[in-house]
Design a protein around this nucleic acid. Structure first.
Length: 917
RNA sequence: GCGGAUAUGGUGUAAUUGGUAGCCACGUCAGACUUAGGAUCUGAUGCCGAGAGGCGUGGGGGUUCGAGUCCCUUUAUCCGCACCA
């Protein structure tokens, strides 16, 4: 009987659904394990073979853990709010809810065919009001809290109000947009609106006038991680900097904790590094420079206070708030023109023109606090308004940008660190001997920096300060298809919706574009009000809904809380998270922030949401080409194309197998190829190929349905894993899929002969068979724990090769369980064939027995390149003499050493021995 | 510019973590069975060489009895950040 994968897979997928095999509940008698996939955005294109790569890996691990006795939570859902559905709605008028529903159904169908062990009773969709109620709830909580730097946690805003009323800002150390000082009397004298304005400076969810990334084509603002090289990540439209009133989340308050938290996470070093760079912590000094003929003190931030004796000028950003004030009358025209130019240049141009030196003098001077010298203040766009204080002290001798600027404007260059060639370029040294620097002359840079921190503080010039590159997250989008803000306005002042009014449901509309006045689509809703007051018109961004979804899976139908204490205490956090690296600075940052906040408030019991994280590589497309002889409808095979003048044409990879074109399918593919003729080599048409991004236009999109149809889900699952290491990006290539399919057929044939009779016997296994079996168990267990699924599949193949025609239950039964996480359908079927009535996933994963490995594992010494080599390990404590004595007692060694005097015995402690003859 | 990763046969990859480089598959070649093969089975297959033998993990150097693995250097490719003071 042949291996009929279609029948087997349909049967078991139905059985699993009917029996609810994968439903999980809180069960304190068993240890929990939480395996999570990054839930997909259900796009119109459906699933392609890249999506399931991570899903298959996590599915294998979930099934493995379950077989090892864990209570495994493995849920799935949909990240259903987002731009593409809305763009589609604008073009077609179809409501995003409708297209999303269609896409979700398609995704579900495709996923079901692959045989995943999700508990679908726990499915969530971010666009479901029952779900986004808790997104809105979390927002209100953030609105209601501020971050106290002393307590190192979020604290209720009420206690801040009480403090303001009692002592004002006295002794306050809180995360804020701009530092403020006022007294209790001042606070108490202000009206509600004014008080609220002040509180917005501290709330963790706040509304403020900020510089934002505005994308005109998308008609919305974007967060920093949604912009790349001055273009929107979605759509690739230009993005400009604009000052707008927007809701933001104060993620910067958690910068240090997010940095520290990385230490204990089992994430890849590269991912941690990406987050560290994104947070961008730098330790430096805040220093105030006196401005000549003025009361003002210009504040700068520097990481190199040791070079302060080399400061010969200062630079402020064109957006700096003192630009006007510092500009003298005679420089006014030049400055205004420069500012005007800067404004006109878009963000893209600024990036493209990196390293072009430009700037203008203000005419004002500052006083170097250490040398007392007057130094000119310039304006230049190489200083960014958004980082530090928007002003720098320039040390041309030791900073390449300052150097270029000084050279361009003919400014003085004073070296303060020995070395380099100041005539030619700056010497950006991080160590070396200080010179020309008064009391730190002769010290090393590394000593001088801490000395200067102290000195700056002692002289009252400033203090040591830590700066972060991380910016607060812009949280509003001028869009329709997202969570509405639970916020209404009286005039300009915002008020939170009462909690019992949640969810604030997204109202249905018909026209999804912005209004003529450029307002968000919600402005079209006639009664978008709360108790007669206008509701917020923008909606939340994509990352809002995905920030806490892993918590909701723990208790998805709870109407009283995001997650019950009981469920959260049991499931705690995600043990294994599998997904793409592209979320490194987006979702994975926001989720950690969101979780830490809820942790501060006591709603969750773990401060980090994702303990271990594995990034699966991207699957690229492998395109195929045919070569048309120019001016004809003849196509020449790859090997012969050099003899013709040809035109390369992308051909649908689904009609090419092993780079060989299916001629009939090609003629049927498109009308213009109906009469195509071919110049074949060896009777075949061989196509060319290239690795490209998977995309419709290159006809290289492979969707899993075809593979499942032709080879079955088990083959797809195993093949995707066999492709190479999980974390590596690789092109999709079906050239090797037959090998994996052949393996499954071979496995099937150990149970049945050609006539379909069961060939299973109850004979006892031989030592050799047991050795093979236990070797395989050991290897498979190790490989799964290391996420090395490609090598585990090799191990299965080796096992079958070694076993040959073995029909013994004693061997095949454990082997079937061993293979079940990888190929669940065939395993389940064979399990039933072997007479079990319960599902194979209630069995226990086999343990290996060292005994079978050791007994037959005696290693004889072998002669290699004139050396006698042993593979045996010896303990550290043994002396060479003892080892030699040990060697000559073994049978094989005696044979080798008979009558020979070894020149030397080389002992690497505990490892291996070479004997040079 | 800064940071991170990768480099092994015709191809995807493996290597007990410093110990016989190329496991397992694909492909190719040869053979068997076949009316047929995109079926099945057997064998060969890193390169050079008729052979003995030599060479071989991007290049160069080093440590070591021994290096794909460790160190230095260099090249190429990919990714992240980027005028971050």
């Amino acid at each position: 009987m042949e291996y009929n994968f279609k029948q087997i897979e349909t049967k078991w997928q139905k059985e699993w659904a009917d029996r609810k095999t994968y439903r999980v509940e809180v069960d304190s008698s068993r240890p929990k394990y939480y395996v999570l996939d990054m839930f997909p955005y259900p796009s119109g294109a459906g699933l392609h073979v890249g999506h399931p790569l991570g899903y298959i890996a996590s599915d294998i691990y979930s099934r493995y853990k379950r077989l090892c006795g864990f209570n495994v939570l493995h849920p799935m859902g949909y990240d259903a709010f987002g731009l593409p559905a809305e763009q589609y709605a604008i073009q077609t008028g179809q409501h995003p809810a409708v297209t999303t529903e269609q896409n979700v159904n398609r995704y579900r169908e495709q996923m079901d065919k692959i045989g995943f062990c999700y508990d679908w009773d726990r499915e969530v969709r971010t666009c479901d009001p029952e779900y986004y109620k808790w997104t809105q709830w979390a927002f209100l909580k953030m609105y209601d809290h501020y971050y106290c730097n002393k307590a190192q946690k979020a604290v209720a805003i009420e206690s801040l109000k009480a403090q303001f009323a009692a002592v004002g800002t006295e002794g306050l150390d809180a995360a804020c947009t701009t530092p403020m000082t006022f007294t209790a009397e001042e606070w108490n004298s202000w009206d509600e609106d004014k008080k609220e304005q002040v509180l917005q400076n501290y709330r963790l969810a706040y509304r403020a006038d900020t510089m934002v990334n505005w994308c005109a084509q998308l008609g919305t603002v974007l967060a920093n991680d949604e912009v790349k090289d001055g273009l929107s990540v979605r759509g690739g439209f230009p993005v400009e900097q604009k000052r707008m009133k927007q809701w933001s989340l104060r993620v910067t308050a958690y910068a240090q904790r997010m940095l520290d938290g990385l230490e204990q996470l089992e994430w890849s070093d590269s991912l941690k590094e990406i987050q560290r760079n994104w947070i961008g912590r730098s330790v430096g000094a805040q220093v105030f420079f006196d401005v000549k003929d003025s009361e003002r003190k210009l504040e700068i931030f520097t990481t190199r206070p040791d070079t302060i004796f080399g400061v010969t000028f200062m630079v402020i950003a064109p957006e700096h708030e003192w630009v006007e004030e510092l500009t003298t009358a005679e420089n006014k025209a030049a400055v205004e023109e420069y500012i005007e130019q800067t404004k006109k240049r878009s963000e893209r141009e600024r990036i493209a023109e990196t390293r072009r030196v430009s700037g203008v003098a203000t005419g004002s001077y500052a006083i170097n606090p250490f040398t007392g010298k007057a130094i000119p203040i310039y304006i230049s766009d190489y200083v960014l308004a958004g980082y530090g204080t928007g002003a720098i002290m320039a040390v041309p001798a030791h900073d390449s940008r300052d150097y270029a600027f000084a050279r361009h404007f003919g400014l003085e260059i004073i070296p303060v660190v020995e070395g380099g060639n100041i005539e030619v370029e700056s010497y950006d040294a991080k160590s070396g001997k200080m010179i020309n620097s008064d009391f730190i002359t002769g010290k090393d840079v590394t000593e001088a920096i801490p000395m200067m921190f102290e000195e700056v503080e002692k002289r009252g010039l400033g203090k040591k300060l830590i700066n972060y590159r991380l910016r607060d997250a812009i949280f509003s989008r001028q869009r329709y298809w997202g969570e509405p803000f639970p916020v209404y306005y009286k005039g300009e002042t915002s008020y939170p919706l009462p909690e019992d009014k949640l969810p604030l449901e997204l109202p249905p509309i018909e026209n999804f574009g912005p209004t003529e006045q450029g307002e968000p689509p919600l402005a079209r809703v006639a009664d978008w009000t709360f108790e007669g007051h206008a509701l917020e018109l923008s909606t939340m961004p994509g990352f809002a809904g995905s920030s806490a979804y892993y918590l909701r899976y723990m208790d998805p139908r709870n109407n009283e809380a995001l997650v019950s204490k009981e469920a959260n205490d049991y499931w705690r956090n995600v043990d294994l998270y599998v997904g793409g690296i592209e979320h490194a600075t987006g979702h994975l940052m926001y989720s950690r922030f969101w979780n830490m906040f809820l942790y501060d408030l006591g709603y969750v019991c773990e401060s980090e949401p994702f303990k271990k994280l594995v990034n699966q590589g991207m699957i690229q497309g492998r395109s195929n080409f045919v070569y048309r002889v120019v001016g004809t409808n003849k196509f020449v095979s790859l090997g012969l194309k050099k003899d013709y003048e040809t035109q390369e044409i992308h051909v649908d990879v689904n009609i090419v197998k092993n780079d060989q074109l299916d001629l009939e399918a090609f003629r049927a593919w498109r009308p213009e190829f109906k009469d195509a003729e071919f110049i074949l080599e060896d009777g075949k048409y061989v196509c060319g190929w290239a690795i490209e991004k998977m995309s419709k236009s290159m006809f290289n999109v492979v969707n899993p349905d075809n593979i499942v149809e032709n080879y079955g889900a088990d083959t797809l699952r195993m093949y995707e894993m066999f492709l190479g290491p999980l974390e590596q990006s690789k092109p999709w290539d079906t050239n090797g899929i037959d090998g994996v399919h052949k393996f499954l057929r071979k496995f099937w044939r150990l149970f049945f002969d050609r006539e379909g009779n069961l060939t299973l016997t109850d004979e006892a296994a031989t030592p050799a068979e047991l050795k093979t079996l236990h070797k395989t168990i050991k290897k498979i267990r190790e490989d799964i724990e290391n996420f090395s699924f490609n090598t585990s599949i090799s191990a299965f193949m080796i096992c079958l090769n070694e076993l040959g025609a073995c029909h013994k239950r004693a061997v095949l039964e454990p082997l079937t369980i061993l293979i079940a996480p990888f190929a669940p359908h065939i395993a389940e079927e064979l399990w039933e064939v072997m007479g079990h009535s319960e599902t194979i996933f209630d069995a226990a994963y086999p343990e290996y027995d060292e005994q079978h490995l050791v007994e037959s594992a005696f290693e004889y010494p072998v002669m290699m390149n004139g050396k006698l080599r042993f593979k045996q390990n010896y303990p550290l404590a043994m002396t060479p003499a003892e080892i030699q004595a040990d060697i000559v007692t073994t049978e094989g060694a005696q044979k080798w050493l008979e009558g020979k005097a070894p020149k030397k015995i080389i002992v690497v402690p505990g490892k291996i021995i070479n004997i040079v003859m």
